[in-house]
């Protein structure tokens, strides 16, 4: 059988990107890394995520995109808070700092926190 093999070994999947949004990717990577560092077992992670997804699914139907990762984010935050790594108000305050940084930064310039020149 004669089939041109120039791309025979290349993946042939016309798919949307693996991560639809950069924050999905960052969140996923943080979770995998924290697990690898031993902060939680994968069994515990999936148990908590499953519980949170079931609770979220009662209010509206999750489409598996942003809403799925929003539940994932809440779950990771709850675990970090339960472990005393951070707390709600610190996350909220840091989120405000980032919001201000974006608002303050001219378009095209790197966005940095006011107190973190190296960030």
């Amino acid at each position: 059988m004669e089939i041109p093999d120039k791309s025979a070994t290349a993946p042939d999947f016309a798919e949307p990107p693996v991560f639809a949004e950069p924050w999905h990717a960052e969140l996923f990577a943080m979770t995998v890394h924290l697990h690898k560092q031993g902060l939680f077992s994968w069994l515990d992670w999936t148990a908590q995520l499953s519980e949170a997804l079931a609770a979220a699914g009662k209010h509206h139907t999750l489409d598996g995109g942003d809403d799925y990762y929003a539940v994932w984010l809440d779950t990771l935050l709850q675990i970090m808070i339960a472990q005393g790594v951070t707390d709600d108000s610190s996350v909220q305050a840091m989120q405000e700092q980032w919001r201000n940084a974006y608002v303050r930064t001219p378009h095209g310039k790197p966005v940095r926190l006011a107190d973190d020149g190296a960030d």
Partner: peptide
């Protein structure tokens, strides 16, 4: 923004 905040904290 929340993910960015968590990442900064961690």
């Amino acid at each position: 923004l929340r993910v960015r905040a968590l990442e900064t904290i961690l």
